[in-house]
């Protein structure tokens, strides 16, 4: 335990926790996006997939790890952000950060995307996860999705939120590997290539569902 608290107190340690939890959350996105694709196969396929995800014991156990990972990521993120804000009590008169950094890597962008994704997550869990898991809504999963995304405000909110998720991952994915010390000259190209799956393809898959129900159904 002492070793863990020492690790957490250290700046590099906190970042390691952030990167491990963040990269774990990335693997979850693959599973989530793949299951969502059953929506395009029709109501029956999606309802079966959804039932499997909510009843399989392994999935349920991983879900607990997922929540722990999410909490660890959020707490570390907030602590790092607060600590970093305190390091420069007097700011610069002129500070041209945009000459040196990518938009997605700048702190205001990261905090905005993180806050929006966190807000989205709460709303998302309330709309879909709680009714499905705890049976508060007798509707079948497919109908629930179809109903939700038939409201244009909801569909647009989801598309915007996943766009921000993509933005968050544009920085986060490569940052995770850098913090774990894996981003070497030899593997940087590979990390940057795989990153495209996370910041572009997965958000596009997620966005395709509200777009499909809103415009094509």
């Amino acid at each position: 335990m002492n070793k863990f608290t020492a690790l957490y107190r250290s700046s590099v340690g906190k970042k390691i926790i952030m990167s491990l939890s963040g990269l774990f959350l990335c693997t979850f996105l693959i599973v989530h996006a793949s299951v969502n694709l059953f929506l395009f196969k029709g109501a029956e396929a999606y309802n079966t997939a959804s039932h499997f995800m909510s009843s399989n014991i392994i999935i349920r156990l991983v879900e607990v790890v997922l929540f722990v990972g999410l909490l660890a990521h959020m707490i570390s993120g907030v602590v790092v952000w607060i600590q970093n804000r305190m390091t420069r009590p007097v700011g610069y008169q002129m500070y041209r950060l945009k000459d040196n950094t990518k938009l997605s890597s700048r702190t205001p962008m990261l905090t905005t995307s993180a806050s929006l994704v966190a807000f989205f997550l709460v709303s998302h869990l309330l709309t879909f996860w709680i009714p499905t898991r705890f049976g508060a809504d007798p509707k079948l999963p497919y109908d629930m999705v179809a109903d939700a995304f038939s409201q244009s405000s909801m569909a647009v909110f989801y598309i915007v939120a996943v766009a921000f998720l993509g933005f968050h991952l544009k920085h986060g994915f490569q940052s995770g590997f850098q913090t774990l010390g894996l981003s070497t000259n030899r593997y940087k190209w590979l990390i940057d290539s795989v990153a495209v799956i996370f910041w572009l393809i997965i958000p596009l898959v997620f966005a395709s569902m509200p777009a499909y129900f809103l415009w094509f159904q």
Binding site: N84, T101, Q178
Partner: peptide
């Protein structure tokens, strides 16, 4: 502060020290 991997340091370093050294520090730390 804590490094957030935005690489402004590398861009401004007069000796162009690469951030791959930060990855090495992280590896050494782990």
């Amino acid at each position: 502060g804590n490094c957030s991997n935005n690489y402004a340091c590398e861009a401004e370093c007069p000796k162009k020290i690469s951030v791959t050294h930060i990855a090495r520090l992280n590896r050494e730390f782990i």
